[in-house]
Amino acid sequence: MTMRMPAPWADHEGCLMAWPTRPEMWGSVFAQARAEYAAVARAISAFEPVTMIAAPGQGGAARQACGDDVDVLELPIDDSWLRDSGPVFVLGPDGRRAGVDFRFNGWGGKFPPFDADDRISGVLLERLGVTAIHSPMVLEGGAITVDGEGTLITTEQCLLHPTRNPLLTRAQMEAELCAKLGVTTVIWLPYGRIEDTITDGHVDGVCMFVAPGTVLVRMPSDPDHPDHDRMRANRAHLEAAVDARGRKLQILELPQSAFVEVDGHRTEVGYLNFYVANGGVVVPIAGCPSDEDALAVIAAAMPDHKVVGVPATTIAYGGGGVHCVTQQVPEEKA
């Protein structure tokens, strides 16, 4: 039976996260990073159960920060971006759940060591009692967005980067995505964010499915924004595409952008990098006037969900957002 990755708005059993582990990489904002991760976990736990993976010996700190509503599980990890290192869950037509264990190489070898993070997907699936489907392909969860009906969107900037799968052609990568995630249509956008040098342009920084046939697209309104023209090129590709059901895509725009200073670095907080929970959407915010307008756009795009903003400037400084630090576990229907 063909397994298929469900849409992010499908029913969840819960959410997985990982506790920040590398003080040398976060520097002076390490404590703030942990505080923001805890705030994200608490916000999501209002909608669905959250399990925080902490490195051995760090469980106590995670429990104290996250509170009693968040479960903590100690397992070896290298880093705290579980969207990228964790399993990608799929469901069979009978509702049976499995997890795809893609390879993880530290975003192209940028942040060694990453051995424990390469193993964590398989370790988690074993602990959860979920069947593992192994793939030899390097893939981070932030590099894809799906509609649950057979359509996947990714970026050439990331998947075709020479540090990911240099021995695979684009056609071979597409075939592996179709085989493991049950998609039949792959839409390739040319660009991720130009300043996204860590993930090499993950799609969760530029667009996200918010309903079947509907895509929310980051579209900076400022002509001087570094991605102004690139995101319009992405939109042109989406306008020309059809999904797995043969539909033209409805395209919604998220024009807001927020830049803040974190530890002396100019940092962009990506509103699009949100997590869809059971009945809720948890959105990174920057403490800027543009926050409310961005939250209103997302609320209009997902009217059946309660939209909650969580300060995430330090998470953005680390290279991501709320979507990057979370991984949904779909509810098994069998």
Rank of each mutant, 00 (worst) to 15 (best):
I198N: 15
R103Y: 13
Q32I: 01
G86N: 05
A179C: 13
A65F: 03
M5V: 13
E140L: 01
A277M: 02
V283A: 06
I298K: 11
V183P: 00
L216K: 09
L159Y: 06
A98F: 05
A300H: 05
V260Q: 11
G109K: 00
I198G: 15
A258D: 04
P284Y: 07
M52E: 12
L295F: 02
T21E: 11
D71G: 14
C207M: 08
P303A: 13
H305N: 11
D196Y: 04
A61G: 15
I133L: 15
A39N: 10
M137P: 01
V307D: 01
G320E: 06
L272K: 05
H134Y: 13
A299W: 05
I144M: 02
P166L: 07
D11Y: 12
P87W: 08
H225V: 01
P136K: 14
K248S: 09
I194N: 09
A116Q: 12
N165T: 09
R96H: 15
E176K: 14
C324V: 03
R22L: 02
L159E: 03
H12W: 06
D229V: 10
V186F: 08
K333T: 14
V183F: 00
M25Y: 12
G122R: 08
V242H: 14
T184A: 14
T184S: 10
A33I: 02
P162H: 12
D229L: 10
G99H: 05
H225R: 04
M219D: 12
G57S: 03
A316H: 07
F89W: 05
P56Y: 12
T314S: 02
T151V: 03
G319E: 06
V242I: 14
L124K: 01
V281Q: 05
P56M: 09
N278Y: 07
A299K: 08
L91S: 12
H305Q: 15
K248C: 13
V297I: 00
P87M: 10
V262L: 00
L73G: 03
H202Q: 03
A300L: 04
L181C: 09
Q58C: 14
Q64E: 11
F47L: 03
G318D: 15
G57A: 04
L167Q: 15
M17Q: 04
L124W: 09
I194Y: 10
G148F: 05
V276Q: 06
V146N: 01
I298C: 06
P76S: 13
R83P: 00
A316C: 10
H228F: 15
V50T: 14
Y271K: 07
D243F: 07
L168C: 08
L167I: 15
V130T: 14
G213L: 06
D78Q: 14
N278H: 07
R22A: 01
A7H: 02
G106R: 02
Q58N: 15
G213V: 07
G321F: 04
P311R: 15
V138W: 04
E48F: 08
D78Y: 08
D94M: 08
E24N: 11
T154I: 08
A55N: 10
C288V: 15
A241R: 08
L125M: 03
G59H: 10
L139M: 09
L82Y: 11
Q256Y: 06
E332Y: 06
W81F: 07
V210H: 07
Q32W: 03
A240S: 10
E48W: 10
P113S: 11
R247Y: 06
Q58H: 14
S257Q: 12
